[in-house]
């Protein structure tokens, strides 16, 4: 866990660069702008929450609280993030683009995986499910980041192409 905190500043720099590139390319506020800021804040919150809970991993008196707090905390924050972005976009009459839809769907999937693992470990606790959980979370995080940065590069390139034709 101690290795996660040194990673955070680099990740934040990348997300800020991504946000800056997007804002300067589209020059207006879109649903995707809110998604970038939301992902940045959610990652920040998750790392802090992970660090906090891991400090109680070896405390048997709090094992139940830590167990439920881990899965429910991540799942509920994922669902809350999706609901918040969807609510903001609805109120601001902003249309969700394809990248935003993909990212929000992946966060819903992450939340479902958290809830599934919470129940599965209590009832079955199989090795297959353990492997699925430990692999799927980082892979989905990667897909989210890849979609986010990929969409920014795509909009940047199409904007450059448009400028060339003008």
């Amino acid at each position: 866990m101690t290795a996660v905190f040194p990673q955070l500043p680099i990740a934040i720099v990348f997300y800020f660069v991504a946000l800056l590139l997007h804002v300067l390319t589209v020059r207006r506020l879109t649903a995707f702008s809110f998604v970038i800021v939301g992902v940045l804040l959610l990652d920040f919150l998750h790392v802090g929450y992970e660090f906090f809970l891991k400090s109680y991993f070896h405390d048997p008196a709090l094992s139940t609280l830590v167990y439920y707090g881990w899965y429910l905390g991540f799942a509920l924050s994922d669902f809350a993030f999706v609901a918040l972005i969807a609510g903001i976009c609805k109120n601001a009459h902003l249309k969700l683009d394809i990248a935003s839809k993909v990212i929000l769907s992946l966060y819903v999937l992450l939340g479902v995986i958290q809830l599934f693992s919470l129940v599965e470990r209590l009832i079955v606790s199989s090795k297959v499910a353990f492997y699925f959980y430990t692999q799927s979370i980082p892979i989905l995080n990667f897909v989210i980041a890849f979609t986010l940065f990929g969409f920014i590069v795509t909009t940047l390139l199409s904007s450059l192409r448009q400028q060339k034709t003008v």
């Binding site: 990673q7 139940t64 167990y67 979370i137």
Partner: peptide
Amino acid sequence: ICTITTLGNGSGDTPPLPDPKKP
């Protein structure tokens, strides 16, 4: 790539199962 992409949702780590017996 891992540094900037695998931070959320607990990074795939798992908490220990709750102890059925209280301390």
